[in-house]
Design a binder for these strands. Structure first.
Length: 475
RNA sequence: GGCCACGUAGCCAAGUGGUAAGGCAGAGGUCUGCAAAACCUCCAUCCCCAGUUCGAUUCUGGGCGUGGCCUCCA
């Protein structure tokens, strides 16, 4: 099994090999906590989650760093309007971010550094860049001198000419040597003091520019060279390009060996979802609309490949919910069915086939959608075998192992409410008595009552089963 | 204007130089006290045109369409 990942730097799927055997250093661009994360943001974050899970499945020890940007122009603006400090303004959104992460079952990263807690590291790096003439001070601001870094543009494949053509920004706003030079440090304004957004530095009091935090914090937690750096495609330019310039100029080492970029989520109209454009949907919105967070998780990581654009729609979300339901139903059935005497050779072969194919799909640039196609194919065949009572002990063991492997990525199968309400069991028993007495009216009434409370009952030859209805799938 | 993706059934979507996974939705059926679940059957010549090839949805060129980046942005 060799893992291949699509590296933006080379534009091809390359065999992944970390610098240090068995260990992966990964940095991923996290949220700017000026608002709730929207589903598009979450897609990128969930992509990081998939990467880290698969690395771990592949046997690597992963050190994953995901930053929280808690200072930038938007935060400054908002805090000003709210009449608070940036720290106070950001707090609820940072908390909301972690709540969203939890309800979507992100696996926690090892570090979540915040920009404002790493000012000294940034100041150090900026000082180095100034000493080396990679940066210059202009009227209290500090800029990175792009002409000092010839490789600039290698990641996004933009050349200087293209940059100039695209430079439609108000260029006279700053004292930059060149329009494409970017800010490392911004001079403090009087308002910044009130917002708690100014720090001392040898080159003058001020606040950090956006890009420097990632360079400084990744160095602090992961060293000069990262194995993997990931983010959304919109971060490729200029953010990641600037990170490379800063880090490589300062450290004289390759910054990141593999760059992974996930595609956008578009809204119903097919356009990119973005906070600044206004029309965006948060996880809270979707949950309020009746979608299960795990259906959303499934939709975002398993419905389409991470490098394909995805359009958010109720129908697609519903489909994802059904798929999760089907998988859970199946996993549950395998678990609770007593194995037959003998194993079924055909089922054994199929399971092994799917298991191999699934691994290969994931190793091929994390093609989870393809892997799921195989899994659902097996679900059907295995259900047939279960119907015919052909699942033997070995079959069962391998099936369960496969489901565990799949859930190592998906994480939608494990239940989060282990202790089943005793009351439900009691009502089921009561309904069974009613059925035996052929009092179907009473039996149906109990089933209806439970359904209204979000619990479905199913009669099977192995007895009555109950399950929680997925939100939104209630009818 | 520059650079770059994508266009597969009602919807979502994977994929391959040799006549297209999977899921949702829909139709019919088996099973069942009813229902649910499960299973079975049905449901696409892969945007258009030209070229390369024995053969292209898959390669090349052109066209049309959609979208992204070039500016804060996952």
């Amino acid at each position: 099994m060799t893992l291949r990942l699509h590296n933006t730097l080379t534009g091809t799927k390359d065999v992944f090999e970390p610098l240090e055997a068995g260990r992966v250093r990964m940095y991923t661009c996290g949220p700017t906590v000026w608002n709730f994360a929207h589903v598009g943001n979450l897609r990128a974050f969930l992509f990081y989650d998939l990467v880290r899970r698969h690395l771990r499945v592949s046997g690597y020890r992963v050190t994953h760093v995901m930053n929280l940007t808690d200072i930038d122009d938007r935060i400054l603006d908002q805090a000003m309007h709210a009449g608070t400090t940036i720290a106070d303004f950001v707090q609820p959104y940072a908390a909301a971010f972690f709540e969203d992460m939890d309800s979507l079952r992100f696996e926690r990263a090892e570090h979540y550094p915040r920009a404002t807690e790493h000012i000294p590291e940034m100041v150090d790096m900026i000082s180095t860049l100034i000493e080396q003439d990679n940066a210059y001070v202009a009227d209290g601001d500090v800029y990175f001198r792009i002409t000092s870094f010839p490789k600039y543009g290698a990641l996004s494949h933009l050349d200087r000419a293209g940059l100039k053509a695209g430079a439609r920004v108000a260029t006279d706003k700053y004292d930059k040597e060149s329009v494409s030079d970017f800010a490392l440090w911004k001079k403090a304004h009087p308002e910044d003091e009130k917002l708690g957004a100014a720090w001392d530095a040898p080159f003058g009091r001020g606040r950090p520019g956006w890009h420097i935090e990632c360079s400084a914090m990744s160095k602090r937690y992961l060293g000069d060279t990262l194995d993997i750096h990931a983010g959304g495609v919109d971060l490729m330019f200029p953010h990641h390009e600037n990170e490379i310039a800063q880090s490589e100029a300062a450290n004289h080492k390759t910054f990141a060996r593999v760059w992974l970029h996930s595609e956008f989520l578009s809204d119903a109209t097919g356009e990119k979802m973005s906070k600044s454009a206004g029309g965006f949907t948060t996880l809270r919105n979707l949950v309020a609309a009746g979608h299960d967070p795990l259906a959303i998780r499934f939709f975002l990581i398993a419905n389409a490949h991470y490098r394909a654009r995805v359009r958010l729609s109720n129908e697609a979300l519903h489909a994802a919910g059904e798929q999760v339901r089907r998988l859970r139903e199946f996993a549950d059935r395998v678990r609770r069915t007593a194995p037959a005497q003998r194993d079924d050779a055909q089922l054994a072969e199929k399971t092994e086939q799917v298991r191999t194919g699934y691994r290969e799909a994931l190793d091929d640039d994390l093609n989870l959608p393809q892997g799921m196609g195989l899994v659902f194919d097996l679900v059907r065949e295995a259900n047939t075998a279960l119907d015919a009572e052909r699942m033997g002990p070995q079959n069962k063991a391998v099936l369960e192992a496969l489901l565990d492997e799949v859930d190592a990525h998906l994480d939608v199968l494990r239940a989060d409410e282990p202790g089943l309400a005793e009351e439900v069991e009691r009502l089921i028993a009561e309904r069974e008595d009613a059925r035996k007495a052929r009092d179907f009216a009473r039996a149906d009434q109990i089933r209806e009552d439970l359904k209204r409370r979000g619990i479905a009952l199913e009669d099977s030859k192995d007895g009555v089963r109950w399950r929680r209805l997925i939100e939104g799938a209630r009818s």
